[in-house]
């Protein structure tokens, strides 16, 4: 019997004795249904539990686009994400140029996409495109990584990048400044909606990495004092129109 079979056999043997369900106060065959928010007296069949139910208990992301935007802006400011909601792509490019001038960017890294191609062209800096592979040392030498994202989440102030359509695994985390270009219709209410959107985009062919990014890189490992830019980007800018 190989190791896989050995472990699975031990698990099956262990599970022949049932365990009490949560909320049943230790009674394996107790008649108390677990007190999940629903009013029905039916004990809940956990295997077929409605997954969406949990979102009702979580922090709110808002119901209208205006609420989503307000919530995302509030979360961003708490996270120290530089979030700018602008009126047009041209305005986003202007904002990007100002940031590049202020920080003295010489080299930027990006990936090919309608949004990033236009922005990189407008920026007029030397650019490394990660598509199809790149030397890691060259990426490390870039002052900024400019990417698109799959979806943004109002509830948490997060955005989702992936390894296939956002320029790979390292682009959004190796350069010291990560800039995300996004359209307003990419902003959804909460994580449940975000996972649904990501699945709709990639479900037939998952990228090897999908990352929920929430603010710039951070640590509190020294006396629980917040420091930004522990290993990943020190700055995260989101330009949305």
């Amino acid at each position: 019997m190989n190791a896989r079979e050995r472990i699975l056999a031990r698990i099956r043997e262990a599970l022949t004795v049932p365990a009490p369900k949560p909320g049943s106060h230790g009674h394996v065959h107790g008649s108390h249904p677990p007190h999940v928010g629903s009013q029905d007296a039916q004990p809940i069949g956990f295997r077929n539990r409605p997954v969406h139910e949990a979102r009702a208990w979580l922090p709110k992301g808002g119901t209208t686009p205006a609420e989503h935007l307000a919530r995302f802006a509030a979360a961003s400011s708490e996270l120290k994400t530089d979030f700018r909601s602008v009126d047009s792509e041209a305005e986003a490019h202007a904002a990007l140029r100002r940031i590049a001038d202020d920080e003295g960017w010489r080299r930027v890294a990006s990936h090919h996409h309608a949004l990033t191609d236009a922005a990189v062209a407008a920026l007029g800096r030397t650019a490394l495109f990660t598509d199809g592979g790149y030397p890691p040392d060259d990426l490390e030498a870039c002052e900024a990584g400019i990417t698109t994202c799959d979806v943004l989440v109002a509830q948490t102030g997060s955005l989702v990048v992936n390894s296939r359509t956002s320029g790979g695994r390292a682009l959004s985390v190796l350069p010291p400044h990560h800039v995300v270009l996004a359209r307003r219709d990419q902003l959804v209410s909460d994580l449940t909606d975000a996972f649904e959107r990501v699945e709709a985009l990639h479900g037939r062919q998952w990228p090897s990495m999908i990352s929920l990014v929430t603010g710039p890189s951070r640590t509190g490992d020294i006396e629980r004092i917040l420091v930004l830019g522990a290993h990943g980007p020190k700055k995260l800018t989101v330009l949305m129109w």
């Binding site: 990495m209 929920l212 990014v213």
Partner: peptide, 10 residues
């Protein structure tokens, strides 16, 4: 609310 990076590897 959530940590800085929550990453799925497939």
């Amino acid at each position: 609310t959530v940590t800085g990076y929550n990453t799925l590897y497939g």
